[in-house]
Amino acid sequence: MAVPRFPTIIIDAAKCTVPFACKKCLQACLQSVFSVHAVKVERGRETDPSEAGAYGLNAGHRDKCTGCNDCIEVCPEDAITITFPPVEATA
């Protein structure tokens, strides 16, 4: 049986600071691997998408990543790294 190969997707939070305002990878990904969520939630007000660090990005569906690297191409901050395990390791 074919064994799926899950990549490791590292998002550098120091570079990716405003993912909700940017959303380039979220909208470019053919497999919708990424998701964005509010990290900072304050009572009585909406979180500001332009505030650095207020939203976080993760690659929750990395099991659906094909390794096309479209997200890396659209990322203006070079914040995404995708590494697939070597073929032997999945056999």
């Binding site: 993912p19 909700f20 940017c22 959303k23 979220l26 919708s32 990424f34 964005v36 969520h37 998408p49």
Partner: peptide, 8 residues
């Protein structure tokens, strides 16, 4: 939709 595509 906010989470998956950043759609506001």
């Amino acid at each position: 939709r906010i989470g998956a595509r950043g759609q506001e």
